[in-house]
Amino acid sequence: MKAAAFEYVRPADLAGAVKALAGMPGEAKPLGGGQSLGPMLNLRLARPKLLVDVSRLESMRAIEDRGSLWRIGGAVTHSAIEDASLPGGEPLSSVARGIAYRTIRNRGTIGGSLAHADPAADWPLALPALGAEVVIAGPGGERRVTAATFMHGAFATALAEDELVVAVEVPKLSAGARWGYWKFCRKTGEFPEASAAVLLDAQRKVARLWVGALNGAPQPMEALAADLAQRGGLAASEDAVSRALERVAPDLDPAQRRLHITAVRRAVQQATE
């Protein structure tokens, strides 16, 4: 359980990090807290030649209030988000609190989790539901993609090999916004078997419902979300959720379907009761 040999660099700035990544295409990996990559390294499932430690880059470590949104640096740890007071971004703290264990949260980063793109992870589900944008840096400078389009599939994202997540920007919720989040974990802190997130923000006319822990990236249920906004929790009948789930995830086995339907309905209940 010892990692295969790799080289390690800790560039002083973002440009240096991007340059280091671009210098060894396909062989270099950015290292955040290493809480997902570390196990894979130790099991020798991942054998990058170079780790580029971006966890101390100042520009990626800030939580900033930008008026209508919260900008969270890619190297901000889950526990920093858990402990922060984020008016209008309360779901960020509550989601962070539910990630794995405190020891993991103390080192794991939001950018690292997104880039790792585990289908059952929390941020790839919560951030699209919150309407976040992902700020990406690469040799060509900065670009942005919506969190809804960032993840392409299991462990596959919009990132090129020489790009990294420098921040996520999360629009603030209106005062009366309602949030629901549910996940089924076999053991506390494990990756969930089913998960769902709901945002109903009447003032901004935003209704989103996402389901996670699927075979690939979390998926939106837009029609059901719009219906929820109009009719409240009544819209999330067993049948309606089942039909919506069938459209975005037709391949679930019966037990998984049951868990996902229930996760969606419980998240909806939190957001509408």
Binding site: T146, K205, A229, Q230, P250
Partner: peptide
């Protein structure tokens, strides 16, 4: 205690979801 949920009309998403289908 959270405020009671009040129904509303959600704005249509600006663009169709660009999330790639599962397969």
């Amino acid at each position: 205690a959270p405020a009671a949920f009040t129904p509303f009309q959600a704005a249509a998403p600006a663009a169709p979801p660009a999330v790639p289908p599962t397969v």
